[in-house]
Amino acid sequence: MNFLKHRWNDIVEYVMEKVIFLAGIISIAFVVLIFIFLLKEGLSLFKTYSPFSFLFGLSWYPISHPPKFGVVPLFLGSIVVTLGAILIAVPLGVGAAIYIAEVAPRWLREILKGLVEFLAAIPSIVLGFIGLVTLVPIVKEVFGLPTGLTALSGAIMLAFMAMPTIVSIMEDALTAVPESYRAGAVALGATKWQMIWRVLLPAASSGILAAIMLGIGRVIGETMAVMMITGNAARIPTSITQPVRTMTATIAAEMGEAVQGSEHYFALFGIGILLFCITFLINFTASFFIKRKR
């Protein structure tokens, strides 16, 4: 009996080990396959279209004759919207996190944390829709523009999407700073702000950096809501109050109409490769900084 039980345990052990191994292999295989597929499809463009004109071409006219697949306007569109969002979200998010973690009285803190979680739970498409009917008219009005569908509207809305991530992770990082640092600073005669600025922020810096990077990650990957709100004009933006189109929005908008195996189709995959490289670079720098801090 005992022998059988042993046997059974061994079998379970063996099977579990194999299953976990398989799961690991499969997930790695999928990543590799996706990457190969992306490369194969994207690089096919360069059989007929010069990589130089793709990377540095100033116009994106996929249905003109001959078509133009210059990615610069889309790239700049993404940059403008993303940078704008970061410039709004980081200071506001950092400020809000400091307020929640260090300044707000306890009852208010709980309410605010709840609100941040609520904001994080709103699906991005819903936020985009709300932005479309509220933010867009306001931007149009305030800046006296012909349309409110601009890079600025997109940036503001994306900032709202990134903020919950930034606030909640950074708030955790600040709360995790040992009480003894606070006591030490206060006992030396530091005011609350001096204590926060000179001790807490340096002490929590790797967490803060992680918060910001994850916020940026959220912003760069966002597609549908941005498509709804930025005006979708694949032009090189000269100001933040112009309509733009991002790389992600372009793929989403045109994938349906591009004929499979056509030059246009391959060009969209080319954008995919570019996006992949950018995201990879950001994650890489983020983990580099976070590791170095430790």
Binding site: P178, S180, Y181, A183, G184, A185, V186, A187, L188, G189, T191, R198, V199, P202, A203
Partner: peptide, 21 residues
């Protein structure tokens, strides 16, 4: 004036608590 008062009267804690600087 709490700030200048605490400058006059300093405190050493049970567990050493240098700042992470």
């Amino acid at each position: 004036n709490l700030v200048s008062f605490r400058k006059k009267v300093g405190m050493v804690f049970q567990r050493p608590n240098p700042f992470p600087l």
